[in-house]
Design a protein around this nucleic acid. Structure first.
Lengths: 232, 232
DNA sequence: CGGAAGGTTTTGATCAGTCTAACTTTCTGA
DNA sequence: TCAGAAAGTTAGACTGATCAAAACCTTCCG
C-alpha cells in the first residue's frame, strides 16, 4: 500500500545510493589535491567504474535536483546543497570505517568496501550512536578528517611523501584509501597516520627509502608515496 | 569495465536484496506458528507490502533459481537451497539487531528497521566479526533464535501468553518483532525474553492482568499477548 | 452443475541504473 | 585554420523491481 514506487527501501539520506556515490566522486575530484573546479564526465566515470553515458544521464538528474551545477561538455561541480549531501555520505563512510577497525577489529585495508555499502543504509539515529560509541572522533583509520554533523571539514595539506626531501623528518597525516594489498603493506611497515618517518634517500628509479623508529628501513615506490600525505 | 550489468553493488549473499526479503517472508509463513506448507501469493504480498503481481513475478524468478518450489495458483515453499539462503539472511538480521542493542545502546523497538537494511550489506567477514564481538550468541533481543553459520535453528515453542491459564507462572521465551510502539511498551512493563510472569487474571473483554516480580501489575490486550511466546 | 467470488496470473507501463553504438562538440597540433 | 582525435552526449536497449488493469483459474455454494 505504500505509494513508494521505486522498489527500493527509502534511503536514510533521502538520496538514492548510486546518486550518493556520484556526489562522493565529484567531491573527491573537485576538493582533492587535483583541485579542478569541475569534474569531467570521464573523470567521474573512471572514479566510479561506469561508462561516460551513465555519468551524463546521472548528472542531468542531479542537476534537476540542484545538487550539481552541470554545464554540458564542461563538467559538473557541487552546489552548496550537493556539497552538504556529499559530506553527509563521507561522514557516514568514515565513521563506519573507524567503527569497523576500532570496535570490530577489522584491518584498515578491508574496511573501505564494507563502508562503501554500509554508508547507504545507516540512519541518522545509528550514525549518532556510532559517533558516540567512538567518542566523537575526527579522523578515520586512514587519517582522513570526519566531517561533523553539519558538514564542516577542516582544510588539509596535500604535501605527499613523494615530494619529501631526503633527510627530512615528516609526520604522516593520512594515507589515501586505495588498493587493499598496498594498504596492508604500508600498515605493516608502520606507515600509518601519526607515524614519524625519516626520509633516508631517494633511490634511482624514484623509490624512497624510509626509516621509522627502530624498525628496519623500508622502500616504497612512487605509486604508494603519492598516496601518503604529510602534516603541515 | 566490470561486466556487472545490474547497476547495484554485488550482494554479499550473492542474492539481490529484494529476493532475500521474499525468502524471509516465505520462511516466516511456512515455518511459523501458522504452519502452512506453501505460502500463498497474497500472504507473501501482505507480508512484504507489495502487490500480488510483484510476488507472482518474483516467485517465477526464484523458482528458476531453485530457491522455491512454486506451483501456480497453489503457492510457494522453500527448497532446501532456499531455506538455507533464508536462514543466512535471518541470521544476519538477528545478529545485527542484537549488536545494535548490546553494543550501540539502541532500544529493542528501533532495531528492526535498521537491521532490515543492514542485513543485505553485511559481508561474511563482518558477520563473523559481529558474531565474535557478541560472544557467539544464540538469541536476538526479542528472544528469537539466531541460526548458526550452517543454518541450524532449534525448534521453538508456539505457546503464547494469550493461551496461558490464569494463575499460571510462565517464562517469556520471545516476543515477536512487531509494532515499535507496542514493543517499547512491553519492554517498559518488563515483558522481555527470560522474564518470569504470573498470570493474575483474565479480564472481561479478554485482556490479561500480569504481575512480574515486585512491579505493579500490568494489563495487556489480545493483540500484544498473541505476540508473546512462552517457554516449554 | 453452473456461476459468482476471490485469489492468481498476464499484460503493459514506469523508474532507476546501466550498457553499446552512433552522433556531436571541443580541443589540439600541424 | 582546419582536420582528426578526444571527450561528451543522445538514442535505444536491457535488467530489476514495482504497479494498475485486465484476463484467468478455482472453488464452493445454491
Amino acid at each position: 500500500m505504500p505509494p513508494s514506487h521505486t522498489g527500493r527501501q527509502p534511503q536514510p539520506g533521502g538520496l538514492l545510493p548510486a546518486l550518493q556515490d556520484y556526489l562522493k566522486a565529484i567531491h573527491r575530484l573537485t576538493e582533492g589535491s587535483g583541485r579542478q573546479d569541475r569534474a569531467s564526465t570521464k573523470a567521474i566515470a573512471a572514479e566510479l567504474g561506469v561508462t561516460a553515458p551513465s555519468v551524463s544521464a546521472m548528472l542531468d538528474r542531479m542537476a534537476s535536483q540542484r545538487l550539481v551545477d552541470y554545464v554540458h561538455y564542461a563538467g559538473a561541480s557541487l552546489t552548496p546543497r550537493g556539497r552538504r549531501a556529499a559530506l553527509r555520505v563521507i561522514r557516514r563512510h568514515r565513521l563506519v570505517e573507524l567503527f569497523l577497525v576500532r570496535q570490530l577489529g577489522l584491518g584498515w585495508e578491508e574496511v573501505h568496501d564494507e563502508a562503501e555499502r554500509l554508508e547507504h543504509v545507516i540512519s541518522d539515529r545509528l550514525e549518532a550512536a556510532i559517533d558516540a560509541a567512538l567518542g566523537f572522533p575526527d579522523r578515520d583509520p586512514h587519517g582522513d578528517a570526519i566531517p561533523d554533523a553539519e558538514g564542516r571539514l577542516p582544510a588539509r595539506s596535500f604535501r605527499t611523501l613523494w615530494n619529501a626531501a631526503p633527510g627530512a623528518q615528516v609526520r604522516i597525516d593520512r594515507v589515501r584509501d586505495m588498493d587493499p594489498e598496498l594498504l596492508r603493506h604500508l600498515g605493516q611497515a608502520g606507515i600509518v597516520p601519526g607515524a614519524v618517518v625519516s626520509v633516508v634517500s631517494r633511490e634511482s628509479g624514484g623509490a624512497i627509502r624510509l626509516k621509522i623508529g627502530r624498525r628496519r628501513p623500508s622502500v616504497i615506490g612512487r605509486e604508494a608515496a603519492e598516496q601518503v600525505y604529510l602534516d603541515g
